[in-house]
Every structure is written in C-alpha cells, then in structure tokens.
Design a protein around this nucleic acid. Structure first.
Lengths: 211, 211
DNA sequence: ACGATCCCTGACTGGTGACCCAGTCAAATA
DNA sequence: TATTTGACTGGGTCACCAGTCAGGGATCGT
C-alpha cells in the first residue's frame, strides 16, 4: 500500500525522484565541465551521493548521458510549445520563437550541451535520434507559426516547411558562432540577422518586428 | 650542407615530412573513430610507427590534435581561395562556393571533424582560435564574391558582410542536419536551400543559378 | 675516423575512471 | 514481530592510456 500521507513518496516515487535528480545533476556537470571530462564521480559528488548509486539507477554512464539528453530535449520542446501557445499576432509569436532560440548570455547556454551532443551523435544512433526529434520539433513549430500567419493574412510564403528549415539552419549556425566567438557575433547582431532572414521568408518588412 | 641529390631530404626535411605524415594520419583516424575515442597509439598504428615517436614530434596529444586542426583548416581555406580565383561570372563563382561548402556524401565529410572541434573549442581557446579563422575565412570569401558581383552589376545587396554571415550560418546549420540526419535532409534539398537563400541575399532570381 | 646529433623503438609506469560487490539500514509486507 | 525487498555506501578491481626513458642505429659536422 501507501504510506499514511496520501500522495507522498512510495519507494517507486523515491527512485523516480532520485533518477530525475541524477539527470539534473548530470546536465549541470556536463554543461560546466564538458562531456569529455565529465566523470561519473563528478555527477555523484554534485548530488551528494556515492559513486555506486549512479550505477544502481543507470546501468552504464552512456545510459545516464543519453537519458539526460533525452530529458533535456523533451523539456526544451515542451517549453517552446508553451511559448507559441501564448497570445499575440503571428509576427509576435515568431519573434518569441527567435528570441527563445538565441541564448541570453554566454553562460546561459544549454547550447554547449548540444555542441557536445552533435559530436556524440555522429557515432551514437541513440543520441542522433534524440537530436533528430529536437531539431524536428523546432522545424515543426516554426512551420506551424508561419502557416498560421499565412492563414491570418499576415505572412506570404510558398513553402513554409522549407522556410522553417532554412531559418532553423541559420539559427543553429549563427548560434554556434555566437557561442564560440561571442566577440565576433553579438547577441544583438544575431537577433538582427534572425529577424532580417525571417522577415524575408514570410514576406514582411523587417520593421514589422517589435523593437 | 645537402646530401648529393639536390632537393632530397635533409634531416630537417625528414622531420617535417614525418610531422606532416602524422598530422595526416591523425586527421584520418579522428574522422574515422571520433576525437573522443582516438588514442595516440591508433595514430601510431595508422602511420606504422612506434607510440613513442608521436611524443618525439609532438609534446602532448593535445598539441598533435591542435596542429592537425590548424593544418586542416588552413588547407581548407586555401582550396576555397583557389575555387573563387577561377574564371566565371559572380553567380557562377558563388555557386562554386556553395557546392564546395556542402559535403558530397555522408562519408566524404571533413565536417565530422568540425563537429568534434566545435565541442572541443568550447573549452580550448587554441581550438577556438582556429575555428574563428576558419569561419572568418568563409565569411570573408563570401563577402568578397558578393562585393565583386555588385561591382560587376550582377548583384544587389546593401550589407555584403551581413549577407555573408547569414549565408555562412545557414550553411553550417544545414550541413549539421545533413551530416547527422541525411535521411531528413538530402544533398539536393540542402543545395536548393542554399541557392534560394543566396539568390535572395544578392537580389537575383533563384533561376539565375546554373542547373 | 669519430664524436655529436637526430630519428626512432618498445617496454614501462603512474594515474585514472567505469563498474562490481559485499554489506548496511530502513521501509514495506506478511 | 519476523522476513523480505529496495536504496544506498564505499572500498576494491581491472583495463586502459598518455607520457617517459634507456638504448640503437643512421647521418651529420669536423
């Protein structure tokens, strides 16, 4: 049965919570130290837990990393969906997507994680699959926003899917540049590039975007 | 002095040649196995050379990898310069650049190398510097081609540098997608995206590009 | 000729890190 | 209460790998 206090943690809940905690710590550690120099013991330390416990919950280090990437990707797509679900005109919602795409600062970046994941994904099909879903999510959402803008008469575009792919690609590439060489590409300039390209793709003037 | 046969190898030449050979083997091995699972001994094996020799020519593994990345980057920029130095109209030369950017097949990709390098560059300033020069080279060359096209009256563009940055970013991002998920993005489609975006940036019709 | 210098070998070492396992303790179950 | 199950500890093991080092043979300068 349950312990006395209703919805409180059964042992299964406890294990789930611990697993989530470990995934969270893994993400923090990998962001800070990079995938290549992340040790299982680092993640244990960050959770104040013995090294053995990690292997109790996750058979191998790869399992842990993969699960962490999957969880992060899913949460990112979820947040993105919330963002476009909000109110506003199509152009406003498109702008919100662009701004969500672009990291706020060099330290904010969950982007560092995806750079590691791209390199890993070249060799690991599981990781590749996660990345495909993540990028597919972005493209899908961009496509939706553009299509709805067309229906509302705000946008003109003869290939929303293609436009979304181009926009997503450009943002990926520019964010890499911004992440690695923030000196050569400011956040402001990056956002400006994004708005110029997006405006062209959906057939509106760049000045249509909010200030 | 020299040995009898004119341009033949002095000891210094021999050492240089060996170093070049090691850099080349390093590149091949890293492309094949990935940076993370490349061992110094793998590179030694690929060169039919003892493990110790690597450390005779390169103090540390990091030195070797960094030198290899630098050499690869420089050679890439050099080849790119040759490509735009050739004859043709601006649109033809621009198209050559785009096609050089895009890998011919999933196995061709020196791109796999840059994915590893991006992840590494997040932590290693030396690597970051190399990447900055490489990407800077691409942008510079794109800017040149666009500017010359404007002088020739072929192109219209009010910010060649910005256009080059956007184009370079888009290509980076799309190539990542193509490299990781060749199923979701064919080479043909990638090239089509590149031409559409490039045509818009320089103010010509997409049909202006050669078939 | 002959010592100095260089390229190169291959066995060795020291450190490290993923994973294992025997045992502890508390909570769940009977 | 007695027994079982599950979460957790921490020390141990085993494999791996970057970098070292003593020596060997070739080639240089003199």
């Amino acid at each position: 049965m349950r312990s006395a206090e209703g919805a409180r943690s059964s042992r299964a809940d406890q294990a789930d919570q611990r697993r989530a905690e470990l995934l969270d710590a893994a993400r923090r550690v990998v962001l800070e130290r990079g995938l290549a120099s992340t040790r299982v013991s680092d993640i244990a330390k960050a959770t104040n837990v013995s090294g053995g416990l990690i292997h109790y919950h996750f058979a191998t280090k790869d399992d842990l990393i993969t699960a962490m990437l999957r969880a992060t990707s899913e949460s990112e797509v979820r947040r993105l969906r919330e963002i476009i679900a909000g109110p506003g005109t199509a152009i406003q919602r498109l702008d919100r997507v662009l701004r969500f795409y672009i990291p706020n600062s060099r330290s904010d970046q969950s982007w560092i994680l995806w750079l590691d994941a791209w390199a890993l994904g070249v060799r690991e099909p599981h990781v590749r699959e996660i990345l495909l879903e993540l990028e597919g999510g972005w493209i899908e959402i961009l496509t939706e926003v553009i299509s709805e803008g067309m229906k509302a008469g705000e946008f003109t575009c003869d290939d929303p899917q293609g436009a979304a792919e181009r926009l997503d690609g450009m943002l990926d590439g520019l964010v890499v540049r911004y992440t690695l060489h923030s000196g050569a590409m400011s956040r402001r300039r990056l956002l400006e590039h994004a708005r110029i390209a997006a405006a062209r793709e959906v057939g509106v003037e760049r000045s249509t975007f909010p200030a």
